[in-house]
Design a protein around this nucleic acid. Structure first.
Lengths: 208, 208
DNA sequence: TCCGGTTGTAATCGAGTGATTACTACAGTT
DNA sequence: AACTGTAGTAATCACTCGATTACAACCGGA
């Protein structure tokens, strides 16, 4: 991505770099649409190396999805750990919501998760997606101390936020209806999220 | 799907049949993952015919997505047309929510839309997805008479519902956390939606 | 300095997939 | 009955993509 000269790095670093690239590509094109070649190109290595290091596309997607899930989990855990216990539900929503939208700067992370969730029928990724989702749900309930209804409302808003960003709704900001919807859904972070989305230009090669 | 002997039907009927099949396949596997061959098999025709009738996979997906969007739009319009004007917001949410989840029985329709929304970066499908979404939003605002905030909340719940069904969360009903979440999110329609999901077994061939 | 392990690539293979072509079978019309 | 347009398919092509193989380049020790 930004490394012209970075040959022969440690396998561990290369791994993380490829996972980050996979997150971007899978986030944009989904599992079926994301090619190992595009990921390799994004990471600046050869396609053969990507495949061999992860033992196949399926394992690569699994690890990329698990990484994305872990990032969300850690963000929520960290935020919840800062709670004193006398926050209002509004305070909690704002704090966790901010932590969530902060993950948007890691372009691809949340979109990869969304793609994982859309594979519910898959024998491998279906159970994985449900497990990842429920992990985050449990943290929200148990560590952030939300009730079931509060958590449902919070996740609902999070899902709409994620889908609006996946569909690049900020690109339609000339439409007043789109602005109305985004203003209500994104709340205080409207301008930030719109600006962020428009900085994130699609992959180099024409998509699909 | 259910027609062994139905040869030589009118092009118009065949068209609708193929679109319904495409909705199922694209809903399950997404645009990139859904093959014209799987759609042809689901519709009981040859792959060549599918491609020729729609002039390519891209056009087929576009028409399938537009059909799905139209189904949602019509369901909302019909429901809103029955409003007298003195419904509470709770009444409206319940009525539109019921209309929405009723669309779930058309397996594939809402999942195809979700996949369309995940293609926001695409030069063709991005604008289409945003337009479809905003059409439904405007009907909810203008014809069902919801405020911006009410519509945002309603769509948020709808998105979470859709994603939970896409990930087949009902398959995890043994997990108490999953049941908590679904009970709060689906409301009165928990049992219906869970039963419906479990009737909808994946496509014949192993997925992906 | 040679050596062995690790990082990495070029070349290529085979399966899957969208598209095209050339063809067949049927139904309505005169 | 012959004609004509429409519904539909088998066969096959061209290309993409994941995977494999064989090899090269680099580096740290003994």
């Amino acid at each position: 991505m930004s490394d012209d000269e970075a040959r022969r790095m440690s396998a561990e670093d290369r791994r993380e770099q490829i996972l980050a690239a996979a997150s971007v590509v899978f986030g944009e094109r989904g599992y079926a649409g994301g090619t190992t070649d595009a990921i390799a190109h994004e990471a600046g290595v050869s396609q053969a190396y990507v495949v061999r290091m992860f033992g196949g596309k399926e394992n690569l997607f699994r690890e990329a999805a698990e990484r994305a899930s872990r990032l969300v989990l850690e963000a929520f855990r960290t935020t919840a750990a800062g709670f004193t216990g006398d926050e209002t539900i509004h305070d909690k929503r704002m704090a966790l919501g901010f932590a969530y939208t902060n993950l948007m700067s890691d372009r691809g992370t949340l979109l990869t998760l969304l793609h994982l969730f859309s594979l519910g029928h898959d024998e491998t990724f279906g159970p994985l997606g449900r497990a990842c989702f429920l992990d985050v749900y449990r943290v929200t309930r148990d560590e952030a101390g939300m009730s079931a209804q509060e958590a449902s409302d919070f996740f609902a808003q999070g899902m709409l936020t994620t889908v609006l960003l996946a569909m690049r709704m900020p690109d339609a900001q000339d439409d007043p209806a789109a602005m109305d919807l985004m203003t209500c859904t994104f709340g205080e972070q409207v301008t930030d999220l719109i600006r962020l989305t428009q900085m994130q230009t699609p992959l180099g090669t024409s998509a699909r």
